Simulated assay, not measured.
Amino acid sequence: MTVNFSYDKRQVLQALRFHFLSRPEIRVMIILVNVFALFSAALFYFKKVTPLAFLIGSLLWIFIMISIWFVLPGAVYRRAATFRDHFTMEFENDFFSLGNERGSRSWQWSSLTKFIETPNFFHLYFDPRSFFLVPKSSFGSSDAIFEIRQLFKEKIQKKA
């Protein structure tokens, strides 16, 4: 199966948000910041801390949420020229390949550690921090999306 695609900025930013929010270290940080925010709100309510301390805690929460939701995905998008290229991707039984006007590269299916499906993309992971986004819109029909999903499930084995 061969697909051609380029990226839509809004969809890529949403996919990057999903990637960052799925990282365990960011999840833990968000949970800790939210617990801290609730704890500081409770202390403020019971008049155990000053309004300034509560305001600083609230600003910290707002800053972290803005950073994860807007700043981090935007910085990755601006830094990576990949999202401005046009690609051709081929999926074969033994390998898959990716190419653009500057060249192409092939990989064995075993080089992928996992795949994740989001509303607009398939995230193909080489390792926990290195992945490639394949837009679902490039497959054309829901039957083609179903076929490629089955191929991914068959070829990409989760490694322990």
Results as ranks from 00 to 15, higher is better:
F5D: 07
D8A: 14
K9V: 10
L13R: 03
L13A: 04
F18C: 09
L21Q: 11
R23Q: 15
R23L: 10
R23D: 05
P24W: 04
I26A: 12
I26R: 02
V28E: 09
L32C: 14
V33E: 06
V35Q: 05
F36S: 03
F36P: 01
A41Q: 15
L43I: 00
K47L: 01
K47C: 04
K48I: 03
K48D: 05
P51R: 02
F54W: 02
L59Y: 00
M65C: 01
M65S: 07
L72E: 07
L72S: 03
A75P: 09
V76Y: 13
R79W: 10
R79K: 15
T82I: 14
R84G: 12
T88A: 03
E90Y: 01
N93T: 11
N93S: 15
F95P: 01
S97I: 03
G99P: 11
R102F: 13
S104V: 10
R105F: 13
W107S: 07
W109C: 07
S111Q: 12
K114S: 04
F115K: 01
P119W: 05
N120P: 02
F122E: 00
L124I: 12
R129P: 08
F131M: 01
V134F: 11
P135H: 05
S137Q: 06
S138L: 03
S141V: 02
S142H: 11
A144D: 15
A144G: 12
A144F: 08
E147K: 14
I148A: 04
L151V: 11
L151R: 08
K153I: 05
K153L: 05
E154L: 10
K158W: 07
K159F: 04
A160M: 06
